[in-house]
Computed example of a mutant assay.
Amino acid sequence: MNNPATAPDAPSPDSSSAAPSGEATNAAPSAEAPPHPLHRRLKSFVKRGGRTTDGQAKAYADFGPRFLVAYRPEPIDFAATFGRAAPTVLEIGFGMGEATAHIATVRPDTNFLCCEVHEAGVGKLLKRCGEQGIENIRIVAHDAVDVIDHMLPHGVLAGVHVFFPDPWHKARHNKRRLLQTPLVRKLAERLVPGGYIHCATDWQPYAEQMLDVLSTEPLLRNTADAVAGGYAQKPDYRPLTKFENRGIKLGHGVWDLVFERI
């Protein structure tokens, strides 16, 4: 589920995407890639094209007023936004929202604030929420880094989900990857004690980088046993996407990382 990639077999949230965030889409970077976002301003996504269908456009009109949250540079009131007080998880880049909708359904006691900039993905998740009656999702169609910086005070999140962010396969583009020290620190600061960051990728080099960056953040601890190489078992709430299933059949791996706020 703003924003936020996939490995060779999955599309990507870049954190934004249009595929599995569990669905994010991952298009290969162009040869003429612009300067690295961190050299200008930290961002959580790379804008990519995508066609919004008539059904998704209708979802904006029918369900947008109910589920969309406007970006405002001021702290968000979760109780007013969701109509209840409940633990809130931030998702960065949900792609087309299939996994996001599933997770919200199996965790009805948790609120999910979901950032995605791709209109087709936002429209698709709006449609799912409206037609399936999923009341614990709200969508901010804006860059997640702005949302983090200006709408989320420290110590307010129960969790953060970053599923299949763009891996930026080429070595010269690795610095474009979302999960780097500056963002990880921002996320850790906004977690409540015991809150978690759950990342997943199907690109092993990116998994290794995620593990390194998360492990060196002093506010976090790895919940996985060192015997497992530092990688976690896939939590039950995260579904296998069709892209993962296809990759698994082809012998590709998927790596989950779950770190907890100390």
Rank of each mutant, 00 (worst) to 15 (best):
H198R: 06
K127D: 09
A158V: 12
D166E: 05
H198T: 06
N174I: 12
A171S: 14
V145E: 09
Q132N: 15
E116F: 00
P165I: 04
A207Y: 06
D143H: 05
C114E: 01
I137R: 00
A120C: 11
V117I: 14
C129W: 00
Y206F: 09
E131F: 13
A171W: 14
L178F: 09
R107Y: 07
L157W: 02
L126F: 03
A171H: 14
V106C: 09
C129F: 01
R107T: 06
P182M: 13
F112S: 01
I134D: 02
P182I: 10
R177Q: 04
R190F: 13
D166I: 03
W203G: 01
P193E: 14
E116A: 00
D146G: 13
A200C: 08
M210H: 12
K175M: 05
K124A: 11
L152H: 01
C115G: 07
Q204Y: 13
L187Q: 01
P182C: 13
L152C: 03
E119A: 11
V106A: 08
V140S: 06
N111I: 08
G130H: 05
R138M: 13
H150Q: 15
R176E: 05
M151R: 05
V147R: 02
E119G: 05
N136T: 12
R138P: 10
V122Y: 04
G97I: 04
C129E: 00
M151L: 07
M151D: 02
T105C: 05
H169V: 10
H161Y: 14
E131I: 15
H161G: 07
D109K: 10
L219R: 15
I139N: 02
V147E: 02
E189N: 12
H150P: 12
G97A: 07
